[in-house]
Design a protein around this nucleic acid. Sequence first.
DNA 1: CGCCTTCTTGAAGGATCTCAAGAAGGGTGG
DNA 2: CCACCCTTCTTGAGATCCTTCAAGAAGGCG
Lengths: 255, 255
Amino acid sequence: MAQFNRPNLQPFVDRLTSRSILSDEEQQAVLNLPGHAEQVQSNRDFVPLGTRVDHACLIVAGMVGRFDQNGEGTRQITAMHVPGDMCDLHSVVQPMPTSALQALSVATILRVPHSAIRAAAARYPAVAEALWRDCMVDAAILSEWVVNVGRRDAKTRIAHLLCEMATRLHATGGGNDFVFDLPVTQAQLAEATALTAVHVNRTLQSLRSDGLIEWHQRVIRMPRWHALVESAEFDPAYLQAELRPEQRLRIVQHG
Amino acid sequence: MAQFNRPNLQPFVDRLTSRSILSDEEQQAVLNLPGHAEQVQSNRDFVPLGTRVDHACLIVAGMVGRFDQNGEGTRQITAMHVPGDMCDLHSVVQPMPTSALQALSVATILRVPHSAIRAAAARYPAVAEALWRDCMVDAAILSEWVVNVGRRDAKTRIAHLLCEMATRLHATGGGNDFVFDLPVTQAQLAEATALTAVHVNRTLQSLRSDGLIEWHQRVIRMPRWHALVESAEFDPAYLQAELRPEQRLRIVQHG
DNA sequence: CGCCTTCTTGAAGGATCTCAAGAAGGGTGG
DNA sequence: CCACCCTTCTTGAGATCCTTCAAGAAGGCG
C-alpha cells in the first residue's frame, strides 16, 4: 500500500506559505522532500506511544486525532488534524511522542523522514523558521482548546469546535452558508470536547433545532454562519488562517 | 526599575541545556543576550493582547500566568510559568500575542529583544533548535492541561497541577516529602483548573484531610509524595524534566 | 438479509456551580 | 502597637448541567 514515487507536498507548502515567506528555492526544497504514502485505519495507532519516531506524518486525506487519556483510560482527543497538516511536525525536534496518533476515519498519510526534513531545515533557515512557526499555530489551537473544554458549556463548546473545523477545512459556500465534510463520529466529537457521546447527541439536536447546523452523513452545513459564530464565541484570530500577504512573516534574511 | 547591566541568563541556559546539547560557545551566545529587568505587579497585563511585541520575557522570580477568556469574560489560565521559563518564547516567531501575560504575584522579568534572540538563532542553528524544542515542551504541557481540565475530577485535577508545579519548581526535600513555594491564590488555582474558587477550596480541604498536602502562606508541603502522585494520575514524562545527559538532543551538527 | 457501528431517547444521580455571608490573614497608617 | 481595610479563605444551601446506565432505532456494508 506504500508509494515511493513523487509524493505531493504542495498542500503542506501552501500551509507553510500561508503564514511564512519562502523563496521559490525554499519552497522547492520542501516539495522535494521524500515520503511514502500509507493508508491508515481508524481506531488503530499509526504513531504509538513509547516508540521513538523517525518520520513525520503529513495528512493527505482524512482526519487524524491526537489521543491522550486519563488514569482511568478515558480518552481525550487533544488535537484534530486536517489534510495539509504535518500532524506530528514537533517530532522533528522531539522524537519521543507524548501522545498517540490515530486516524478518525480511514486516512491517507505521507511519512516523511526526519532526516530529510532536518536536512532541508539546516540548509534553509527560513524553512526551519516556517516549521517552528507552524508548530506554534498548533500550540495556539491547543491553548484555545483548554479554554473551550474548561470554560464553555456544551452547546457553545461544540459550536466552537465546529466553527474551528469549518475554518481549517476551508468550508465552501461563502456568505452566510457553509458546507464541509467532517468525517468524524459523535463519539469522537465527544472525545474532543470532553463530553459524553450522549450529551453531544442531545446538544447537536439542540443546535439543529436552532437552525444553526445540519449534519447528514458526515457532511455539515451551517446555514447561518454568523449566528453560529456568535453562539460559539468563535474568534478565528488564534488560527492565523487567511493572513494577508503583508502579514506573513520571515525573520531570517534571504540568501 | 529597569536594569540594563549584565542580566543573568544562566537559569535559561540551564533550562535549554537540560534538554538540548549546546556547545560552550553556543551557551555563551545565550548568556550574552541583552535584556532589562522589570518588576511586574499581579493583576496587570505586562504583555497585553492586540499589541505586537518585540521582546520575549524571561522570568527571574515569581510566577506568570497566560490568560485567556471565554465570551462571558470568565478567565482561564492556559499556562503557568516559573523562574527560568521564557514565558513567551513563541513570540520570536509569532509576535502577535494570542494570550495576555500577567504575573500571579509580584514577579521580576527580564525583557530580551527579539532582535538579539533572532541574531543568536541565526548565527547558531543549535540555539534555534533548542528554542524550538523548548516551545514544544510548553506545547506538551498544554496538551496535558486539556486532559486535566477535560477528563479529571476536581480532586485529581488539582492534585495533578500541584504535582506538575512541584516538579517544575524543583520542590526540595527528597524521598517522599517535598516542600515548595507556590505564590498563587486559590482563585488563581481555580482559573488554571477551570473550577470555581469555592470548589477549589473544598477540594483542597479534602486533600488536606487525606494528609496529601499542607499549604500555609504560599508554601506547599507534600508529605506523601508517592501517594499524591498516584491520586493525581501524575506521570511526569510529558514535562521532559531531568533527562539524563544521553537523552538530550541535538539535530544540527557541531560547527 | 444480517450484522455491526452509530445515533437516539429516557430516567435518575451526582459533581460542580451560584449566591450569599462570615472568618481569617496580611499590610498599612496613625 | 493597635486599628482598620482589603484580600483571601471558608462555610452553607439550593440549583443545574452533565453523566451514567440501559435499551431501542437507524444506517451502512458485505
